[in-house]
């Protein structure tokens, strides 16, 4: 297979049914069908609703991606699919659909790690060196700091959240403040009119005594509870100030830890990926602090930061280019797989 292999990637780990197509490192199609509006009624993702929606949308999303890429299914060189981590019932719809395509076409299939795939989008439409790098992965489902020595074979988790994901904390605080779901974009918007220093919220695991055990870990339940208490006791608080101060606390901790990881590992590249990477304050403060620390910061375009199929195709394509063998037929999807293996054996 040539290094510009045509790879189709399928992503169904949460509530987006997504298919992307890449040729080597070039992005050709990125189609997403989201059940987020259905989930908005519940204020969170409901696994059974997500799985049903994946099956309903799958075939039309695949067809639309082929149409957008202007390629025929027969031209596809390899397939890739998210095999974990994620909601198990949702993952299985994706892996089963991908296996059906692979056996139907007689083409190789790569089961890929969703977290690594989030970082792999950084390869698209550019030819810069990808690794080593430190990656801050923040979304509704994950909050991790990863050390990426080699994107397709050697990624390790330096730290992750011990309770809520950062995106979840945004969702919950939005709920407390009476803002809609998903909370991230609304907190961002509300914060624009608020004073980020009006209130001081806890920054968990940043004190010296916590750093010993949780140097790169996060905890967002404290800040969430602090907001809830505050609003319970003084409901008349200026909502924009609360949003801005909460956002400042979360962003501050994310960056303190990411930059420490870069400094301590001697790695000079930081990637921020995941849905929360769209947060305007995170982008602004990350740039300021990376400039000061002389760290090269990269943040993929927003539409590639949230869950999508292009990231899965991108990692599959990197695996093909690296000459890795495809995964064995009969992928076992894993809901809580860490990142010990970027590509399934």
């Amino acid at each position: 297979m040539s290094s510009d292999a045509l790879v189709l990637g399928i992503e169904t780990s949460c509530d987006e049914t997504a298919v992307g197509i890449v040729s080597g490192r070039k992005l050709l199609a990125n189609v997403i069908s989201s059940s987020v509006e259905e989930h908005a009624r519940f204020g969170g993702v409901i696994p059974e609703i997500a799985s049903r929606a994946h099956l309903e949308a799958m075939q039309s999303v695949i067809k639309q991606a082929l149409k957008d890429a202007n390629v025929s299914l027969k031209d596809i060189d390899a397939l890739a699919v998210t095999a974990g981590p994620g909601l198990i019932g949702a993952l299985i719809v994706g892996t089963s659909a991908a296996e059906g395509l692979a056996l139907g076409l007689g083409k190789p299939l790569y089961g890929v790690n969703h977290l690594s795939a989030h970082i792999a989008v950084d390869s698209l439409d550019s030819d810069h060196k990808l690794d080593p790098c430190i990656a801050l992965l923040v979304s509704g489902g994950h909050s991790s700091i990863l050390q990426v020595n080699d994107l397709t074979s050697d990624v390790k988790t330096l730290g992750s959240t011990v309770d809520d994901a950062a995106g979840e904390a945004f969702d919950k605080v939005a709920r407390i403040l009476g803002l809609p779901f998903p909370g991230g974009p609304w907190i961002d918007k509300e914060s624009a009119n608020g004073n980020p220093t009006a209130l001081t919220f806890p920054r968990s695991f940043t004190l010296p005594k916590d750093l010993e055990k949780h140097q790169y870990d996060f905890s967002f339940s404290g800040v969430k509870t602090a907001v809830a208490r505050l609003m319970e006791n003084t409901p008349s608080q200026n909502r924009a100030d609360v949003a801005a101060s909460f956002q400042e606390a979360v962003v501050d901790v994310l960056l303190i830890k990411s930059l420490a990881a870069a400094k301590n590992s001697g790695i000079e590249h930081l990637i921020i990926a995941g849905g929360v990477a769209a947060n305007s304050r995170l982008r602004q403060l990350a740039q300021e602090r990376c400039d000061l620390a002389k760290i090269n910061l990269r943040i993929p375009p927003t539409k590639l930061c949230t869950d999508n199929g292009a990231m899965v195709a991108a990692l599959g394509s990197l695996a093909v280019a690296a000459g890795l063998p495809p995964s064995a037929t009969g992928l076992s999807a894993e809901s809580s797989s860490g990142i010990s293996r970027p590509i399934w054996a």
């Binding site: 075939q59 299914l73 089963s96 296996e99 059906g100 139907g104």
Partner: peptide, 15 residues
Amino acid sequence: LRAGIAFAQSFAFAR
């Protein structure tokens, strides 16, 4: 159930 249906749909589409 969904594993079987998703697989069958994709296989049929591929061929």
